[in-house]
Computed example of a mutant assay.
Amino acid sequence: MPFASPNAWHYRPADDAGIVELASWRGAGSLGLRPHFHDENQIVLVLSGSRAFRIDGATVTVPAGHAALIPAGLLHAPMPTPDKETVCLNAYVPAGRTPSSLRVISIRALWRSVDEIWPKHILEIADDIQSRGRSRSARIADKTKLGVTLTESAGPIDAIAMNFGRSREGFSRMVRRELGVSPHAFRVLSRLNLARQLLRAGEPIAAVAVDAGFSDQSHLTRLFRRTFGTTPGVYWRG
């Protein structure tokens, strides 16, 4: 996977039905981004340098020669790292059987560049990590139900809270405890993930902004860059 320029994330579709898309990074250290989650499982392959993520109040570092699986729906914040150079490949694969927390395994520094990594390698790593993880607990299923409700309901937070038998304040506290962010922030992140899906499908950026519920294209662009490390335009061109 070629790098158009250093110090930027570059996304492209994957030529494999088992992988939704790929993203690569090469630059001094790695980029800090806002907390977010994905609808897919994210496989992080670190070839040099390191990646670090803030999850549930703790920092998890993924060193060179290691891979990590970030489960779909898990709120995480990529942290900046001071390495001289970091080379990383992210692969987004459909959510299937999934551990409930981030997991890291050694890949024994098998590759020197992302161009040496084929989809079959990524899927083998994903299967390896997932086979070591425990299945989702009932609490994870409850978190999923809560997230789906917030995403699919267009009603005000007060009405959703009432359906859960809680006050708005009590519901907000529950969402923060279970999902890590406020109900409004969760909805924004869900709309950003929808925007990624629409952009991958080739929909024009202005239309994506409207369809994903943003006030205008500039609003989408500002939040997209802060969250995913690239602009909708660059992402759309792939």
Rank of each mutant, 00 (worst) to 15 (best):
M1L: 10
P2Y: 03
F3H: 14
F3P: 08
S5V: 02
S5C: 00
P6E: 13
R12Q: 09
R12A: 13
A23F: 13
A23Q: 13
W25D: 08
G27N: 08
A28C: 05
S30R: 07
L31K: 14
L31Y: 10
R34Y: 12
P35W: 08
P35M: 09
D39A: 12
E40Q: 12
E40L: 07
E40W: 11
Q42I: 09
I43M: 09
L45M: 09
S48E: 05
I55V: 15
G57Y: 07
A58V: 06
V60Q: 14
T61K: 14
T61F: 12
V62A: 09
G65K: 07
H66Y: 09
A67P: 04
L69C: 11
L69Q: 10
I70W: 01
I70S: 04
A72Q: 05
A72C: 07
L75N: 01
L75I: 04
L75R: 02
H76M: 08
A77P: 01
P78W: 09
P80C: 12
K84W: 03
L89A: 13
P94M: 12
G96K: 15
S101L: 10
S101R: 14
V104A: 00
S106H: 11
I107W: 10
A109N: 11
A109T: 02
W111M: 00
V114G: 12
D115W: 03
I117G: 07
W118F: 13
W118I: 09
P119N: 08
H121V: 06
H121N: 14
I122R: 02
L123Q: 11
E124S: 04
I125E: 02
D127H: 15
R132H: 05
R134C: 08
R134L: 14
S137M: 10
R139Q: 15
R139V: 14
I140Y: 03
A141F: 05
A141W: 03
D142S: 11
D142P: 00
K145Q: 06
T151R: 15
E152P: 00
S153V: 05
G155Y: 04
G155V: 12
P156W: 02
I157L: 03
I157S: 04
D158Y: 05
D158P: 01
D158C: 02
A159W: 07
A159H: 06
A161E: 01
M162W: 02
R166Q: 09
S167I: 06
R168P: 09
R168E: 08
E169T: 14
M174I: 07
V175C: 05
V175A: 07
E178T: 05
V181L: 10
S190L: 04
R196K: 15
L199Q: 03
R200W: 01
A201L: 04
A207D: 15
V208R: 05
V210W: 02
V210N: 09
V210F: 03
D211E: 12
D211F: 03
F214C: 06
S215V: 13
D216T: 04
Q217G: 06
Q217I: 04
L220M: 13
L220R: 10
L220I: 14
R222H: 15
F224L: 06
F228I: 03
G229H: 04
G233E: 12
V234N: 11
